[in-house]
Structures are given as structure tokens and as C-alpha cells.
Design a binder for these strands. Structure first.
Lengths: 183, 183
DNA sequence: GTTCCCATGTAACCCGTTACATGATTTT
DNA sequence: AAAATCATGTAACGGGTTACATGGGAAC
């Protein structure tokens, strides 16, 4: 069976499995803090996936009335949902790491730019990467103390981002060195 | 004015500027060989952008009859088109390098997997990265001799991919070492 | 004689985004 | 009095994809 749904559906399902009893609102926040760096999704999309998951009976939801805040739905994975998640995790990953870089695209056409403009393109890229770098370091610091499997996964995916950013910063150095050589 | 169009439109426009007189079919092939690694686009999309670019008068097309092959349209950038390209290149790049990784997403939920399955996930990732690595090396080798600005841009974007892949391969080593530590 | 290359296109789908709406409660 | 938090949702758009259609000439 296995209902052909996008990976995003499993992303949300996985979150619910990790954080049982969360509301849609909370899941949006958690998604923003956890896998946003390698799987960004918007609020609207999450709510749509919650509807889909409910229809699929992969999650069940419960209405919770609150005194000092609006009523909310809380979600938890069903047995079928946990099974679907496990099945999906077990299937070989189609190495579809989709990557689109506006910087590289512009750089590719940089022969239409003044050398100064190219330098400023690289400078912007550098500061964006540095910001990223700091974010990843912050995530790792925050999770450093915690020793749950979940925290470890978070640390390691942050490390992936950090190593990537570092390599790209070194690439900028290489390119800048090359640009100076022939000017 | 500057007509709010997606970056993909400029990608195709840039290609036509780089390879004047090419047909849609050829542009599809060139896109596949050149910026596909950081800005993949499908055949259908390219044809759609060609229509849009023609409507915008950023490119002009000419019908060419052939004896031993079907008739084709050939494209070249107009003055307005080259201007639009330059304008776009000059505007500050919104550092929107969108990245989505199916591997990391699965890895993030790996606590639902046997350690063996995690290892095989990493192994698959490794071989995908190695394949990528070889592709980037091949591109750089092919362009090594050529000394045009175009070839250089190709070499440097390939280097970006190569450095990224290398860093990620090293990340796999790090992670595997950590996994062994506590098994 | 089947398969590959050239060449352009149509149809349908849907994932994901942005912008906006609503309204109560708590904090500043 | 204003702003942030909690909480869920609607509407509209469009970028990008996959699958499929067509048809002649060349190559194996």
C-alpha cells in the first residue's frame, strides 16, 4: 500500500512521533527550530499535511479546550502511522538532495559583471555563510549537554551544515585568491 | 520596470546570451551540462521560459529549416535582454540557496532505525557523494585547458560542488566514528 | 528494423509560497 | 494602548515535475 505522499508528509509525521501531543501551532515552531535547515516548510503547508495525515489515519487528533488560550488540536501518531514512518525510513533513499543556489547562478554569468561586482557578490555570500555558521554552532552548543538520541541527531545534522558552510567559506578564499592573480 | 520573473527565466536568458543561436533542444542539453548542478531545470520548463522570454522581447527567435533534421527555432538575446540580464546580476542576491536533503531528513528520524540501517543510510549517501565528486572532477578536467571567462566560471562552480562534497564525505567519517564509539 | 538522435510541444498535477483573516489572552 | 503569543485557517498563485505525443532521419 504505502500511499504515495511527498517526503514532507513523513517529515511532519516524524515530528508528531517525536513530539507527541503537540498542537499544529507548536509543530510549526518545532519544525522551524529542528529540521528547517535541511527541510524548510511553511506554516500553511504543515497545517495541510496535518489534515492529510489525519485523513490517512496515520495520526489522530484530539480537541483540547483551554482556559487561558484558544482551543487546540493535539496530535499523536497511530500504530499505522508509526509503521508508515518505519517503512519510509527503511526504503532506499533516492539521493535527491535538491540544491538551488542563486549565488552560484549569478556567479556563473559573472563575465557580464565588473570585477568589483563579482567581489561584492562573494562578500555577500561570505556573510550569509558566516551567519549560517553561527546558527549551526548555536544549535550544537544548545544540544551539547543533552544525550538523548533525538538531541544527537540534531547535533549531527547541524554538524553537517557547519562542515558544509566551512568548506564553502574556504572556497571563497580560493576564488578570491585566483581573482587577485590576474588583475 | 524589470518585470518580476523567477530566477529561472534569467538562467535561460543567460544561457542564450552565452550560447547565441542555439535551439531549444540544444539549450536543454547545455543546461544539463552546465548549471544543472546548482540550478536544475527540466526540458518542459526551458521551453516555457523560451516562450516567456520571446514574449518579453528579451530574446528573438528565428526559424531555421534543415535538410537532414526537423526545423528548429534559434534564439539570441536582444539589447533589452542583455540589459535585463545585467540589471538582474547587479541587484543584491537574496541569499536563498534552497537546500532540501532527503538523507538528512531520514537521518533526523534515525532513532526509529536499527543501527545497521543507519549505517547503510550513510553508505548510500557516501556513494552518492562520491559519484558527485567524480562528476565535478570530470567537469574541471574538461575545462582545465580552456581559458575563457565562461570556462573559468564553470570550473569555479564545479570546484564549489567538489569542496562541498568533500566536506560532506568527511562528515560521514566523523559520524561513523561517533557511532562506533557507543556500540 | 529497431533504436537513437533531433526537435517541439501538450496536459495535468501538486507542492510550496505569500498574503491575509480572526480573535482571545497575556505581557510590555 | 500596543504588541506579542496562542491557535487555526482560507485564497490565490505559480513554479516545477512527470508523462506522453509526434515524426522524420540516421545509425547499428
Amino acid at each position: 500500500m504505502a500511499a504515495k505522499v511527498p517526503d514532507t508528509t513523513y517529515a511532519v509525521l516524524g515530528l508528531i512521533d517525536k513530539v507527541p501531543g503537540a498542537s499544529g501551532y507548536e509543530l510549526v515552531a518545532v519544525a522551524g527550530r529542528s529540521f528547517a535547515h535541511f527541510w524548510p516548510i511553511s506554516q500553511t503547508l504543515i497545517y495541510r499535511e496535518l489534515d492529510r495525515l489525519t485523513d490517512l489515519r496515520w495520526v489522530a487528533r484530539t480537541r483540547v479546550e483551554q482556559l487561558h488560550a484558544p482551543s487546540k488540536w493535539t496530535y499523536h501518531a497511530t500504530t499505522a502511522g508509526r509503521q508508515a514512518l518505519a517503512d519510509w525510513l527503511a526504503t532506499p533513499t533516492p539521493a535527491t538532495s535538491s540544491f538551488r543556489s542563486g549565488v552560484l547562478l549569478r556567479f556563473f554569468f559573472a563575465y557580464r559583471l565588473h570585477p568589483d561586482q563579482v567581489r561584492s557578490l562573494l562578500a555577500d555570500y561570505r556573510s550569509a555563510l558566516q551567519t549560517q555558521q553561527e546558527e549551526f554552532v548555536a544549535i550544537m552548543d544548545k544540544l551539547a549537554a543533552v544525550s538523548t538520541p533525538t538531541a544527537r541527531a540534531g547535533r549531527l545534522t547541524a554538524l553537517h551544515g557547519l562542515r558544509t558552510a566551512e568548506a564553502r567559506l574556504r572556497w571563497i578564499e580560493e576564488v578570491e585568491a585566483q581573482l587577485e592573480d590576474d588583475s
